[in-house]
Design a protein around this nucleic acid. Structure first.
Lengths: 342, 342
DNA sequence: GCTCGGGATGGTAGCGCTACCAATAAGGGC
DNA sequence: GCCCTTATTGGTAGCGCTACCATCCCGAGC
C-alpha cells in the first residue's frame, strides 16, 4: 500500500500531511488557516503545531484553482521609471505587505493597446482586485475591467463615470492653479512646456489654457509640446525652442518637474535670471524642487497616498462593504517657492 | 445526463470545450498550445480555430498546479522608487513582455529579513526564475534561493561565489575610478558623501578609500555618511556637514547622483564655484547629470542592460543550456564633465 | 424526554490543466 | 514481408486545494 506520493511535487508537505499529523480532516486544516474562528480552539492549536513542525505553506496555485480566485492584485501603470507612478506603486506595495495578497505589476508604456493586452493576461488569473492608472481606457479595456468580476480602482485622476472606484485629483485644476499663480505673480507671457503629453498632461494643458484665456493672455504660440518621453534634458531643449519662438516669454508652467529642472538649468547656462526674467512652475513637487537653486514652485501631488487609498478601497470592497464614496479626490497643493517670487 | 458544468468557474471556456469543438482530446489541445511542433498541421489549425471561436485562454493557475511550475519570474529589489532599480526592473519587463512569463515584483526595503519573507512567499508559487538584487543575501535567503529549484540571477553587482548566476559590475572599482579621476584632476582634499549606505555603497566607499590611500590622501574625517535614505535634499545637508567638518574640502565623490545634485545646488546657493573650488563626481549617471549646470561628472552604469541580460540568462537556463559564463560583468564608464574640469 | 437549531467536523467531488504511459499509425531497414 | 523505430494521439490519474453537502453532537425550548 505504498502511496505514490509526491511523484511530481517537490516533496513539499501538503494539506493532507498536516491533516494526518494533526489527526483531523484536510478541510479542517484548510478552515483553520483561512477562517480560524470556525474551528475549535483545541484543533486549531493542534493544527498550528503540525503546520509549524512540517513547515507547511499552502500552495497558492492550488488555492487559486480550487477557489476560482487568486490572492493577487493586478496593477497597471504606464511607466515604471517615472517617479510619479513609482510612488503610487510604492504606496500600493506598502499597503499590501502585511496582507496575503501578492502583486502583479504591468507596464503599459502609455499604450492603450498594451493595456488591453495586459488585462487579457491578468483576467484569466482571476485577481482579487485591479488597480489601473488613468481614466482613459479604451472601450475594450473598459469592458474587460467591468467584467473582471473584482473591484477595480482607477488611480491618478478623478472624473465622471468611474468603472468602479477612483482615487486621484483633477489635473485640469492643477494646471489652472499653477498658471493662475504665475499670472498672479505678474508674469504675462506665460508658456506651457510639456513632454509625453499623455491624457493627464493634456488636461493640465487644458487647465493652463483656461487660466490664460480668463486673463486674456492666451496665445497658442506660447505652447510647446512633444510626444517624446519626458526628461530633464528634453526640458532644456523645449525651453530653448520656446524661447526662440517667443523671445518675450517671461514664465513657464512645466508639464512636470523634470522639464522644470531642465528649464532651470538652461536659465543658469544662458544667464537668464529666475525668477526675475523667467518664472518657473513644475508639477508633482519632487524632493529636488525645494533644494534647487533657486527653489522651484510646484504643484504637490499625493502619489503615495493615492496608492495607499486605492488599496484601502479595494480591500474594503473585497471585504464586502463597498465604500460610501466611490470617487475620492485627494487634491493637490501649490508650493510657492523662489522660482516665482518676483 | 446534464453535466453540472461551470458550477464554480465563471463559465469561461476550458480546454475540454476546445477539445470537444475541435474533435480532439484535451491533451492534444494542451500540446498544440505549448509544443505546436508535436501536433500535426491539420489538428493544429482545427484547434486554433476552436480556440479563436471560443475565446479560450488557458487558466494559469490550473497550469501551474498541474505542471508544478508557474510561468512567473520573481523579482526582488530593495526599492521601487530609486531610479537605479526602476531601470533594472524596466529592462526585465521589456525583455519579458513578449514571453508568456508574468512578473512578480517584491520590494525588500533594503532589509535582509524582508527579503527572506518575500522569498518564502515566492517559493511556494514555484516560479520559473528568480532575480534578486545584490549579493549579500542572509544565509537563510541564500539557502532558500539554492533550493528554489529554478534559475537564480543576482543582479547589480558581481562577486565571487554566485548562488547561480550574476550580472552587474564592481562597485568597488567604480568608487575607485571616480576617486582617482578627482585626484587626477588635481583635487586633494576629496570627500566621500553617502546616504543609505547599503552594501553597494559600502563597496563604493571602499573603492574611494583604496584610491585615497594609494595617493596618500586618505583622512577619515573626509568621509560623511548616513544610513538615512538618499535624496537630493539630504545631499545638500550632508555637504554642509562635510564642509563644516573639513573647510578645506576641495572635491566630493558622491554615493549617487541625487546626492551629487544636492551638493551642486548647495554650491550654487553658497556661491562656491564648481569645479574651481569644489569638484563633484556622482554615481549612476542619470540623465540630469549632463544637463546640470555645470554638468556633473558621473560613473555611468548600465542598469537597463543589467535587467535585460539577467532575463536572457534566466531564459537560457530555463531552456536547458546553462550559459557559459555564470558571472557577467557589464562594467561602467566614467563620464567626464564640467564639474571636475578644473 | 423529545425535537430542533446551530456549531463543529468530515467526505466527496471537483477546479482546469498536464505528466505519464499506452495505443495506434506511419515509415525504414533488412 | 516482418520487425523496429518514430511520430501522433488519447486515456487516466492526479497536482493541492476548497465548495458543497452530510453528519454528528450539544444544549435550548417545549
Amino acid at each position: 500500500m505504498t502511496k505514490p506520493r509526491s511523484r511530481r511535487g517537490g516533496g513539499r508537505p501538503t494539506i493532507a500531511d498536516v491533516a494526518r499529523k494533526a489527526g483531523v480532516g484536510a478541510i479542517t486544516v484548510s478552515r483553520a488557516l483561512r477562517e480560524p474562528g470556525r474551528v475549535s480552539e483545541d484543533l486549531r492549536r493542534q493544527i498550528q503545531a503540525a503546520v509549524a513542525e512540517l513547515g507547511y505553506v499552502p500552495d497558492p496555485n492550488a488555492r487559486a484553482l480550487a477557489s476560482a480566485r487568486a490572492e493577487v492584485f493586478g496593477v497597471l501603470v504606464p511607466s515604471l521609471t517615472n517617479n510619479v507612478f513609482a510612488e503610487v506603486v510604492r504606496g500600493i506595495y506598502d499597503s499590501l505587505s502585511d496582507s496575503p495578497f501578492r502583486i502583479q505589476l504591468g507596464n503599459t508604456h502609455y499604450s492603450g493597446l498594451e493595456e488591453e493586452r495586459l488585462l487579457q493576461v491578468f483576467g484569466p488569473q482571476r485577481p482579487a482586485a485591479l488597480i489601473v492608472a488613468g481614466i482613459d481606457q479604451t472601450p475594450a479595456s473598459r469592458k474587460l475591467l467591468e467584467n473582471a468580476g473584482c473591484p477595480v480602482v482607477q488611480v491618478m485622476e478623478t472624473g465622471p463615470d468611474p468603472i468602479d472606484m477612483m482615487v486621484g485629483f483633477s489635473h485640469l485644476d492643477g494646471g489652472r492653479t499653477a498658471t493662475e499663480h504665475l499670472i498672479e505673480m505678474g508674469y504675462r507671457r506665460v508658456g506651457f512646456i510639456g513632454a509625453r503629453m499623455d491624457p493627464r498632461s493634456q488636461r493640465r494643458l487644458a487647465g493652463y489654457r483656461t487660466a490664460m484665456e480668463k486673463a486674456g493672455l492666451f496665445d497658442p504660440r506660447l505652447i510647446t509640446t512633444t510626444p517624446v518621453p519626458s526628461s530633464v534634458s528634453l526640458g532644456r531643449e523645449l525651453f530653448r525652442d520656446a524661447l526662440a519662438k517667443v523671445p518675450t516669454l517671461d514664465g513657464v508652467f512645466c508639464n512636470n518637474d523634470d522639464i522644470a529642472l531642465g528649464v532651470l538649468f538652461e536659465c543658469h547656462r544662458a544667464a537668464i535670471h529666475v525668477p526675475k526674467t523667467i518664472g518657473i512652475v513644475g508639477f508633482n513637487d519632487l524632493d529636488m524642487m525645494q533644494v534647487a537653486f533657486p527653489s522651484i514652485t510646484s504643484i504637490r501631488t499625493h502619489r503615495y497616498e493615492i496608492g495607499r487609498r486605492a488599496v484601502a478601497m479595494a480591500l474594503a470592497a473585497i471585504a464586502g462593504g463597498r465604500p460610501q464614496e466611490r470617487v475620492v479626490d485627494l487634491g493637490f497643493e501649490l508650493k510657492r517657492r523662489e522660482s516665482t517670487a518676483r
